[in-house]
Design a protein around this nucleic acid. Structure first.
Ligand SMILES: [Mn+2]
Ligand SMILES: [Mn+2]
Ligand SMILES: [Mn+2]
Ligand SMILES: [Mn+2]
Lengths: 215, 215
DNA sequence: TAAATTTGTTAGTCAATGCTAACTATTTAA
DNA sequence: TTAAATAGTTAGCATTGACTAACAAATTTA
């Protein structure tokens, strides 16, 4: 069985590999808040396990086996988040830290039961796709709200960032997944966007709009 | 935060201290399936943390702080078992191994939510008491079914052993907590007991009867 | 009570996972 | 295109929690 450390490394590497296919050591160190030499030695270990391709001074590549293994951990993480929100009444800003621990539980039955009770959900509470049991992840093609033009009416589908602070900000604006948003006006100077939704009118910064994924 | 190892040791020590106030090293080693030197060094560490009293070659005593700390882990374990049975549809024979892992999750909110959703249960699925948030454990005075006399009608309240095999045996006999059992006859020679319950008549061995706690 | 057995301890080792300091290779900027 | 900055590596060490081998104390048995 892989240790929690190994699982956490693999998850970070997998996520970075989505952005750019080649992953670098420094990025892993920053994401996990560990030193570069710690990453270097773990990376060699993961390579030895066939989860990564490693050559000295070259960017890392995750293998199919690594991708598969990571997908199963992410599946457990996202199922957990969904379960906590849907079945235990947590807010979407409360679930990540708990899921970060529960994703390491070794019990297929436990997660299968969550999956069943949830009716085999496709997305986690932040709109990210839940990998299926085969490790396949649906790629969701959403646009950023910041790319929308005045007059467009779109639905909030997912978030590109899920920090507690951002989620609490969205709570304060009553912005939740599924909300229909109409773009009223885009300020040319700073790209601030005036939007209407749920009978409200709000001005959202370019930063916020770039993290709201819509369709 | 205490490590999982520390928590597992403490739980074992606490449980053994219920039987005899003084705990010995060998018993811990057997329960955790580790070597005696491993126990010896951990015991010194726990003593250094104020969780145990330790003197060379003397039996161990758990401190009030140790008792309190252990009770909170056991609370998490038993709440989890109850949650898995009541809210997720697991059988009472399936939950211990999952709870053994979940008891180490660091999230008061997670267990508080379980507790609420369960309506603040007093017992786990095997009839063992769930310590309250102050670490207090209700002492339940049950008799062993093996101490009952022919003609007595009692209710199955708890189990003195909870191994998977025993629980599966009870499943096969449809013996569950809450079942009303009438003692029909006790064989003098081997103490085998003939009992009636739920419209069935069964003969239970003395070993089994000594593990069925009734009132 | 002396010998044998059981229980507990010490010393030394190992694997996993982290670290810092020192160094090397690669990339970027002057 | 050399110098500076950044990124990656190595060596050496610390901590946690396990182990075996050797030994000492306590308890049981003869
Ligand atoms: Mn998350
Ligand atoms: Mn994690
Ligand atoms: Mn249990
Ligand atoms: Mn445990």
């Amino acid at each position: 069985m892989n240790s929690q450390s190994i699982e956490n490394y693999l998850k970070v590497i997998f996520n970075q590999a989505i952005v750019t296919d080649e992953v670098n050591t420094t990025g892993i160190a920053q994401a996990l808040e560990v030193s570069l030499p710690s990453v270097n030695s773990m990376v060699k270990k993961l390579a030895g396990m066939g989860l990564l391709e490693y050559e000295k001074y070259k960017p890392l590549k995750i293998t199919e086996k690594g991708r598969q293994t990571a997908a199963m951990i992410i599946r457990k993480h996202r199922l957990t988040e969904m379960y906590l929100v849907e079945k235990m009444g947590f807010g979407w800003e409360e679930v990540h830290d708990i899921a970060e621990q529960l994703e390491h539980i070794q019990s297929p039955e436990f997660f299968d039961r969550m999956d069943e009770l949830l009716g085999h959900p496709q997305r986690d509470p932040h709109g990210s796709p839940i990998p299926n049991k085969q490790g396949h992840i649906a790629i969701l093609e959403y646009r950023m709200l910041s790319d929308c033009k005045p007059g467009e009416k779109v639905e909030l589908k997912a978030l590109a960032h899920t920090s507690d602070e951002f989620l609490r900000y969205l709570n304060s604006k009553e912005l939740a997944l599924g909300v229909q948003v109409q773009v009223v006006e885009v300020e040319v100077y700073d790209k601030n966007m005036t939007v209407d939704y749920e009978g409200r009118r709000e001005v959202l910064s370019a930063l916020v709009c770039s993290k709201l994924l819509v369709s």
